[in-house]
Amino acid sequence: MIRTPHPRVLSVSDRAYRALLYLYPTVHRREYGPLMARFFRDLCWDALREGGLPGLAGLWTRTMIDTARNAVVEHMDQKGDIMKTLRLTAALSAIAGVALLAANALSIYSLLDIWWTQPVLDFDWTIVQIGFLLAFPFHLLIAVTLYRWYGVVRLQGIAGVPRKTLMISIVAGILSALGIVGQFASFHDISDGQPLLYEWVGVLLGFALVTAFQLSTAATLYSLFKHTARAGGPKLC
């Protein structure tokens, strides 16, 4: 059994280094902080065993320089990552927003056209089905955008995100799942031709869910775009 040299000094040194780790960005500290602390403890153990307290003092001098230099490097690295993600998210939000706007305009036009110019039971189901199929890529794009947004949240840390934006995103995520289920239900119900009464309920429910999803997504996209396109980017920690 090897005896630990200067256990009290080792413990103080360990605590001091853990405090020093707060100079690093949060994400880096979460991922590597415990490993760095463990590594430093091993270095301290070696320094004390080989050089005693003067050896430890030498290690601390080198570590202060190492921390000062690398904390700055990590902050700059982090800033680069965040800005890259933010730019991509803002671009995706803008594209998804325009796509959503086009899809909704087309849907409204189709509904007006169907309800006001044709008898109710004489729908052109093919057009409606094509509309549904076209909506799927839009939803996929929105899902990708929301995924990128999750990346932003992960990089910034939850504290860097406005609470309102976060709540809207969570609601949009839930409604997104319901909306896709609704869309599948509607598509299934109308695909057989003329719908029966109970099938109408399914179609209307599907429409309601999809509309709720689209409204919440539009709000999220707007919020994302506003947040991510903001000059200067978010706070880093």
Partner: peptide
């Protein structure tokens, strides 16, 4: 990490000593 540092010290005859910031930043 510590094993890497020990091996680097051995390869360089103790001339290169990587601190925790340099090592884990590089990793």
């Amino acid at each position: 990490g510590y094993g890497i540092m020990q091996e680097v010290a051995a390869i360089t005859q103790g001339r290169t000593r990587m601190g925790p910031g340099t090592l884990y930043g590089s990793i």
